[in-house]
Each structure stands twice: as C-alpha cells, then as structure tokens.
Design a binder for these strands. Structure first.
Length: 273
DNA sequence: CACTCTCCCTGAAAGC
DNA sequence: TGCTTTCAGGGAGAGT
C-alpha cells in the first residue's frame, strides 16, 4: 500500500535507472479497466526518451522528450518493476514499456485501484487529477501558519484532516497514525481543538516520519516492493500501526484501534490525549 | 459547502 | 482441512 514515502522511493529509483533511456514500444497487456480505462493513445510515447521523473502527491510523473508526461498512480496494490527481456508476463501485468536497452518496465496491479494517464506537458498544471490537491508536506509551503489557518476552521477529527488530500497530500493511514502517536495527540480530537504548539509539533513529526521512512526505503506491508523487488524497512519502526492489543513501547499500556470514516486508526489511549 | 458513506477490486488471513 | 467471511484503503461519486 504505497503512501508518499513508497512512491518517492520508487521515483528516486526510476530516476537512477530509466532516465535518458528511450521507449522503443509500449504494450497494453490487458483490456481491464484500472481506476480509469488505460488510455487508447499510449502508443504516442513510442520512440520518446525519458528526460525526468517527478512526483506530485502519490502520482509518478514520467517526463518525455515529445512534450508528453506519462502519469502513473499505484492505488493500493500497484507495482512498477524493471525486468530484463527474458521476463514472462504475469497475472495482473497491465502495461509494459520496452526500453532501448531491452529492459522492460512492468506495471502490475492486482486490485486495479491504480491509474495510468497520458498528458501534454502544457496541460499538466490544469489536469483534473491534480486540481483539488493540497500542498506537499515535504516542501517549504507546509508551514505552521498554513497548518494553523486550515485546522482552526476544521471541525473534523485531526486524523481525518491530516489524511485529507485537499489539505496535505501523501499522508495515508500509516503515517497519520504514527505522526499522531509521536505528537501525543488523540486521533479523535477535532482539528480546531489543537493548540498552536500541538499543531507545530504535529507538523514537524509528519515531516520527520515521512523523511525517516523514505530513508528506510518506505514501509513494506503485504507485498510492497520497490522496482528491483526489494522490501522497505520502515514497517519495523511502527509504534502503533497494526499493533492493537500489543504493549505501547512508551507506557506499556495496550494499543487500541477504532474506525474513523471507514479507516482503522491505531493509537495509545494513555500516551495520546 | 462540509462531511460521511459506499463502491471499486483481489488476495491474505482469520473464522467456522 | 477447506470453505466463507473479513479486511486492507486511495479516490470518485453519491448521499446527508
């Protein structure tokens, strides 16, 4: 389940391995629909070269030298894998890009919550997918002033607010739970009840945890792997996520879980107030 | 407008 | 052991 650190890890690996390579051919391997149908005009990227990889929210942007950008979202179960020319297509492989060195970039997504989209560079700022997205938590715009201004008018639970992509992008369930724990804030508190100090602490902890996870190659739950089939390590650093019934590392009380807007929140009722 | 709920989908794991 | 049920959750769209 890739969140921002996992997507960032993949982007960094792709930057090292596929930039400056030419796409000889793109092949659709299934006719199944992802979140949206795979675009019919994908072959427009044949013979283009990859100039840059970037990320917006959890979207991976593959910049091409023909004024196109290939946008990939991994949803819940999507993977990008780099394989050699002996690779045999597997179940749930949806698209392959064949590069000039004969390597294959495979998009595999069992649950098909992911998305593949082709955009012109000039339209990238205006595309529907990005229009309601909030700020990037690892960029300078994420300040105490911004966070204060947004949260003071929000009645919803703080957990839901920090997972709300209109406010900040990329913070999914794992990192929301972990940053609230580290900040000693209950996930059920209404956003507008937080003090300035708590907001500042939470902001710093969100940034710290995301960066720490990126440094560890992301979190591997179920079968998340990076493009070369390696697991991340940050799951070994969880304080609360998935630890319900187990002892809190700080106070030894039992970690509990609750449902908020259909998502499971993990927290320590003793440490988080 | 603000917010919640439901659905999409498959595979792993828990329950019976 | 084997079948059934539950759960995971990002995002879209419907509903309150």
């Amino acid at each position: 389940m890739p969140e921002l650190p996992e997507v960032e890890t993949i982007c960094r690996a792709l930057s090292k391995q596929i930039v400056n390579h030419k796409i000889i051919k793109v092949n659709r391997l299934t006719n199944l629909k992802l979140r949206k149908a795979i675009p019919q005009n994908l072959q427009e990227i044949n013979d283009s070269s990859i100039t840059q990889i970037s990320r917006r929210s959890k979207y991976i942007l593959i910049h091409l030298d023909n004024n196109k950008i290939l946008i990939i979202h991994l949803g819940m179960s999507g993977k990008i894998l780099i394989k050699d020319d002996k690779y045999i297509i597997q179940k749930h492989d949806h698209v392959e890009l064949i590069l000039d060195d004969k390597s294959k970039i495979i998009y595999n997504d069992p649950r098909r919550f992911g998305l593949i989209y082709l955009s012109d560079i000039e339209n990238i700022k205006n595309i529907e997918l990005f229009k309601d997205l909030g700020i990037e938590p690892l960029e300078d715009q994420f300040t105490d002033d911004y966070f204060n201004a947004i949260l003071k008018n929000k009645k919803q639970a703080i957990k839901l607010a920090i997972m709300n992509p209109k406010i900040i992008v990329g913070v999914g369930n794992i990192y929301a739970c972990e940053s609230l724990f580290t900040s000693k804030i209950s996930p059920e508190r209404s956003a507008n009840s937080l003090t300035k100090n708590e907001i500042s602490t939470l902001r710093k902890n969100i940034i710290k945890i995301l960066k720490n996870s990126i440094d560890n190659g992301g979190s591997s739950l179920k079968d998340y792997k990076n493009i070369n089939g390696e697991k991340g390590f940050f799951q070994n650093s969880f304080f609360v996520y998935g630890r319900n019934g187990k002892e809190c590392f700080i106070c030894n009380e039992a970690i509990e879980k609750l449902k908020q807007a259909g998502r499971t929140s993990f927290y320590c009722p003793n440490c988080q107030k």
